[in-house]
Amino acid sequence: MTEPLLCVRDLRVGFVTETGRVQAADGVSFDVAPGEVLAIVGESGSGKSVTAQTIIGLTRSPNSRIAGSVRLRGAELIDAGDDELRKVRGEQIGMVFQDPMTSFNPVYRVGRQIVEAVRAHRRDIGNSEAREIAVEMLDSVGIPDPAQRIDDYPHEFSGGMRQRAMIAMALALEPELLIADEPTTALDVTVQAQILALLERLNRERGLATILITHDLGVVAEVADRVLVMYAGRVVEQGTLDEIFYDPQHPYTWGLLGSLTRIDRDRPERLPQISGAPPSLQSLPQGCPFRPRCPHEFDRCPELPGLDARLAEAPAHLDRCWLEPEEKRELRQVEGQIGLEAPK
């Protein structure tokens, strides 16, 4: 692996609420190399968005408690000043959010917002030059007629175009890292395919590193190099794309893989499901947080397993489950496929 661009170590994000403290992310560690796509997969409350937002300081508030380390090319961001962080955002790290409707200011033209973003960071660039950059960026993300469309208002763009324009704005200052939080969730599948192809091209051509936050394992399979699976604020499994899909070690990952509907295979009579619901972060079970929903629970589970390498042949494939790897390979076989348990 090349020298990591981003190094996250033991990141902890807690929030003080009226009813007590909530640990939204607990001990999250990972690296992102240049040109690499890291997918963070999880459901609501898993801590995936909080982790991403904390990297660029968006969770800083009087009620948040942040600890750990986030280093970008060796520079610590966790305790960086607001001015310094503002420079990092945009210039080194771009961010794209889920909802392209609310990410633009509706009363300003699209182009002006990109120009403003560029000039906020680069005082040496004049208005007309910034406008040229904006046109160029819109063109590179596939907006037709960029020189004309740059003067449109956000509502004159379709959802897919708005998300492209959002990516254009995030990339206008040529950051090295893009954080994309559910960038295609609000889009139609045909538009999603175009956005994913665009992200893939940017990775290949510009060596852009990407942290892709999503709940959709189909999207992960299409674009990710490595995968982090989060549950209840913790990483429960991490590995390469193929390790996660073809040799998954954590029962939660089995459940996610097993409950997918596939159009390229015969459909099962009933969809395999994960019973119960994700736990409330305010009343986590003792030990493994997935324990109440896991059919393979046994007497070691009340003790929290560490995120460790348990496979001799794959030292970078980590998981938090006490079961023996041999046992896991047997248990996860459900009706000839990977799954948590046979559908009831």
Binding site: T190, A221, F245
Partner: peptide
């Protein structure tokens, strides 16, 4: 899903991500 006839249906099906890295 298996033998779509309409061009739009084909386009729609082709855009659905397949949750299988090798297939993808």
């Amino acid at each position: 899903c298996d033998q779509p006839r309409d061009a739009y249906t084909k386009q729609l099906l082709a855009a659905v991500p397949i949750p299988d890295p090798r297939e993808a």
